[in-house]
Amino acid sequence: MTEYKLVVVGAGGVGKSALTIQLIQNHFVDEYDPTIEDSYRKQVVIDGETCLLDILDTAGQEEYSAMRDQYMRTGEGFLCVFAINNTKSFEDIHHYREQIKRVKDSEDVPMVLVGNKCDLPSRTVDTKQAQDLARSYGIPFIETSAKTRQGVDDAFYTLVREIRKHKEKMSKDGKKKKKKSKTKCVIM
């Protein structure tokens, strides 16, 4: 069974824990209790493949930012979460993405942009803004509501699919490099 290491990042209060708990335990946590770091595991079937999701729910508070490099190193894919009623959390996505790329030393890291709290009427981040940002990053965008469960499975499952595509691409690139290195030079 394939294991996928997913990391949920975003500013404090955007609903990272609520999304994760909704996926794992099928219930909505409405009281806000700032996370330092929590880890969850769940076995699911995605596109006919049974897999184990190892999900790291991270601290959004700035005082825990020193811990970010460590979990970013171990993560295979990242859910970059903002709240649709919090423009600052949307603007912060850029910083999370840049930090992930720096730590992973790669421009090509599996990510999904997630606009959470889409059940709320007080939207300050337009869907088109988020779609445009995701398009500019070359990553999928999904709106979710941890409260109603809308888009929750889709967000995590899409990230797994992005990781699969990335692994497939990397193995193809690896095979191309191996083929090239088999060419021999004969000096007579």
Results as ranks from 00 to 15, higher is better:
residue 60 G to S: 08
residue 54 D to A: 03
residue 40 Y to L: 02
residue 52 L to G: 15
residue 61 Q to I: 09
residue 52 L to S: 14
residue 8 V to A: 05
residue 26 N to H: 10
residue 34 P to R: 05
residue 10 G to W: 00
residue 48 G to K: 12
residue 47 D to V: 04
residue 62 E to Q: 11
residue 29 V to D: 14
residue 24 I to L: 15
residue 18 A to P: 03
residue 33 D to H: 04
residue 50 T to Y: 07
residue 13 G to K: 08
residue 61 Q to T: 14
residue 6 L to N: 01
residue 58 T to N: 04
residue 42 K to G: 07
residue 37 E to Y: 06
residue 47 D to A: 08
residue 4 Y to P: 15
residue 26 N to S: 14
residue 44 V to M: 14
residue 12 G to E: 12
residue 2 T to I: 08
residue 17 S to C: 02
residue 64 Y to H: 15
residue 15 G to Q: 00
residue 40 Y to K: 00
residue 27 H to Y: 15
residue 18 A to T: 08
residue 23 L to P: 02
residue 54 D to N: 07
residue 47 D to L: 04
residue 39 S to T: 15
residue 40 Y to W: 05
residue 58 T to E: 04
residue 45 V to R: 13
residue 38 D to M: 00
residue 14 V to L: 13
residue 28 F to I: 05
residue 32 Y to C: 06
residue 3 E to V: 07
residue 25 Q to A: 15
residue 39 S to K: 06
residue 5 K to H: 10
residue 26 N to F: 05
residue 41 R to Q: 05
residue 62 E to I: 08
residue 47 D to K: 10
residue 63 E to T: 08
residue 30 D to M: 09
residue 45 V to H: 09
residue 32 Y to R: 03
residue 42 K to W: 06
residue 5 K to A: 04
residue 25 Q to C: 11
residue 18 A to W: 03
residue 48 G to N: 11
residue 32 Y to E: 05
residue 23 L to C: 12
residue 44 V to G: 12
residue 29 V to E: 15
residue 2 T to D: 15
residue 48 G to T: 09
residue 23 L to G: 15
residue 28 F to W: 12
residue 27 H to D: 15
residue 6 L to V: 11
residue 20 T to N: 10
residue 34 P to T: 06
residue 22 Q to V: 03
residue 44 V to N: 13
residue 22 Q to I: 03
residue 37 E to F: 06
residue 36 I to F: 10
residue 20 T to M: 05
residue 39 S to R: 05
residue 59 A to P: 15
residue 30 D to Q: 11
residue 3 E to H: 08
residue 5 K to W: 01
residue 14 V to C: 12
residue 30 D to G: 11
residue 54 D to C: 03
residue 50 T to P: 14
residue 13 G to W: 08
residue 6 L to P: 04
residue 53 L to D: 02
residue 40 Y to S: 01
residue 2 T to Q: 13
residue 9 V to D: 03
residue 36 I to E: 02
residue 15 G to K: 00
residue 37 E to M: 04
residue 16 K to R: 02
residue 36 I to Y: 09
residue 53 L to E: 06
residue 23 L to Y: 11
residue 12 G to F: 07
residue 7 V to E: 03
residue 30 D to P: 12
residue 21 I to D: 03
residue 22 Q to K: 13
residue 43 Q to P: 13
residue 49 E to I: 05
residue 35 T to R: 01
residue 36 I to G: 01
residue 44 V to C: 12
residue 15 G to T: 01
residue 44 V to L: 13
residue 27 H to C: 15
residue 9 V to H: 05
residue 60 G to P: 08
